[in-house]
Amino acid sequence: MSEKKLQVLTGIFMVIGLICLSYLAIKLGELNLLGNERYPVIAKFTSASGLRVGAYVEAGGVRVGLVDKIEFDTDDYLAVVTMAIDNTVHIHEDAMASIRTAGIIGDKYVKITPGGLDYLEPGGEITETEPSINLEELISKYVFESGDKKK
């Protein structure tokens, strides 16, 4: 085989491979090459039980971002959830963030209820939060408390 043909065939392989690699990295891995399309917003919850990194952030049922990071603040014993919100979406300072469940056994997501004051700066904090609802606790409370009343 001539040297040129070898190089061309190798080149074709490299191009196909790189196209596939960039498809996977950009589409699936959500690699941001063109600057940040999202900005961070934090919210502190008394319980972030069941919430995972990569969970949706929804406002009005529409996806507006993802949960980026979940940490535990040892100073005030709260779960600090960092969310990456799409640049096109502005969140009010007095908006409320609550952790909800999609369906009964579905994934946890963060629901943003809009407020009415000024918009938050990137890195700002949503102060009004509602922790994740523990379905088991609710059910046991309902079942056992109603049982007690019958006595």
Binding site: F13, M14, I16, G17, L18, C20, L21, Y23, L24
Partner: peptide
Amino acid sequence: LISVPLLTAVFITV
């Protein structure tokens, strides 16, 4: 080291 990751990417995409 160059080819195997590229082939893996092709495999996953396909």
